[in-house]
């Protein structure tokens, strides 16, 4: 859930991750209460099926429990670290054979990213402001390709199917879009 004060929210998440590293189960529950809904929103978008996403969400929290000691505190990125674990788990499940059973039937039924998918720059911290600025410098096609891949977990082929563009064009959109983002973010 986006927090009205991103810095305080991140500090609290950081504190809870530290407590999880010390095997504090209540801290894991508090972490769950703070971020599980936001994770599930992201994971359902990628996995299409709620049951599959909820199963993967369980793995995410077990992974957080195991990896909490590896989190490097003080870098102001606790929410990003947690959300990345969730998103990578969803992508792993999506790319597994098991999820292939679901995907083909579902990919055309999922709505395209709406306004909500434009990113919540405020809750994502300082680096998000730079991304917001650089994202606006991309072409519409590049933005769309990157959003469909990142938010919906679409493959190049999925995006080609949804947009009706050739596969090579999609690969080019994304490759050039990411290169532009990198140049913009590193200057």
């Amino acid at each position: 859930m986006p927090h009205s004060d991103p810095q305080n929210a991140d500090a609290e998440l950081e504190r809870l991750i530290g407590a999880c590293a010390a095997h504090d189960r209540q801290a894991l529950r508090s972490l769950y209460d703070l971020i599980a809904a936001q994770m599930l929103g992201c994971m359902v978008r990628i996995l299409k099926r709620r049951a599959l996403a909820e199963e993967a969400l369980q793995d995410v929290f077990v992974s957080i429990w195991q990896r909490a000691a590896q989190f490097e505190s003080g870098r102001g990125r606790a929410r990003g670290w947690l959300m990345s674990i969730a998103r990578h788990r969803a992508i792993d499940v999506l790319r597994s054979e098991r999820a292939d059973l679901y995907r083909e039937a579902d990919v055309n039924q999922v709505p395209e990213p709406a306004a909500e998918a434009a990113g919540d720059w405020a809750s994502a911290g300082r680096s998000a402001a730079a991304l917001a600025r650089c994202f606006q410098e991309l072409t519409g096609e590049q933005r769309r390709g990157i959003e469909l891949a990142f938010i919906n977990g679409y493959s190049h082929a999925d995006i080609a199917r949804v947009t009706g563009e050739p596969l090579g064009t999609i690969k080019s959109w994304i490759r050039r879009g990411l290169a532009s983002l990198r140049r913009c973010l590193e200057t």
Partner: peptide, 21 residues
């Protein structure tokens, strides 16, 4: 990860079923 994760922050949250915890 750090650069792009903001794209996923604005998605509508979904409360997990009690069985998940």
């Amino acid at each position: 990860d750090g650069r792009l994760i903001a794209l996923a922050m604005g998605l509508t949250p979904l409360a997990p079923a009690p069985a998940v915890w």
